[in-house]
Design a protein around this nucleic acid. Structure first.
Lengths: 127, 127
DNA sequence: CTAAGTGCAAAAACTTTGCAACACA
DNA sequence: TGTGTTGCAAAGTTTTTGCACTTAG
């Protein structure tokens, strides 16, 4: 798997760099509409990037996948189910939990939700 | 929304009671094949149960949804990505993490993964 | 009786794939 | 030049929906 550099791939990569939260393939497709990139190319590129470790994929609770740059630092995003605003956490809230799981069961958690769903301050007040 | 008791619903409910891990709609359909229940009935029943709080739904990382009885006790299941064996946790490993998030950001986490993915003892050794 | 549930088939939403044309290294 | 990449259209999966018929309460 060589990973050639092409126009499409560069566009997709630089778009991903601009994102502050994971993005869906269809969104990428829409945002790069003017660049005439096919949806299948978007999917294939994202898959290639995934295999290469450049991006990570996460399937949301609505069933659609979102992608984000596999940056060096492991971080999490809180997304409000109501207003869809996001908060970026600068630490991993699950480190301790995963350590405990490891100690007690020898189970190695390797796939956490990067996006954590819930209600933000404002929206939880309203309910 | 009344939630009538029907043959199909009773079958699905008792099947759910037998499960030790979340199950997909297609699996329910297959297991109840002899009972002549349509796949759309399975989906509609699960949706009705969800709305009623009888079952919960979770979308896996492969994009398919799984369902489980909303039992009184909040628990988690560790699923090995390699061998697919499951371990049932009797506590919520994320309680502390969610408390901290709440304190620091006022964000109320309400949708955790019930199924946590990773590698079990044996499979993590092999790699 | 009548609102809710079901079967069937068709549609929807997202993702993958086959194949021929194309472009990077 | 040759392998990886792309476009296009078609197919695959899982889930949802419309409508006429049936059933529980």
């Amino acid at each position: 798997m060589e990973l050639k550099s092409t126009k499409s791939r560069n566009e997709i990569l630089s778009l991903l760099k601009k994102q502050s939260a994971p993005i869906a393939a269809s969104e990428i497709f829409k945002k790069l509409m003017s660049k005439k990139i096919t949806l299948s190319t978007v999917y294939r590129t994202l898959e290639a990037f995934s295999k290469n470790g450049v991006v990570k994929k996460e399937v949301q609770q609505n069933g659609t996948a979102v992608y984000y740059l596999a940056s060096n630092e492991h971080c999490h995003i809180l997304e409000c189910k109501n207003c869809h605003n996001t908060i970026r956490l600068k630490y991993c809230p699950y480190d301790n939990a995963n350590d405990r799981i490891k100690k007690e069961t020898n189970f190695l958690v390797d796939e956490e939700n990067v996006v954590i769903y819930g209600l933000c301050k404002n929206c939880s007040k309203k309910k």
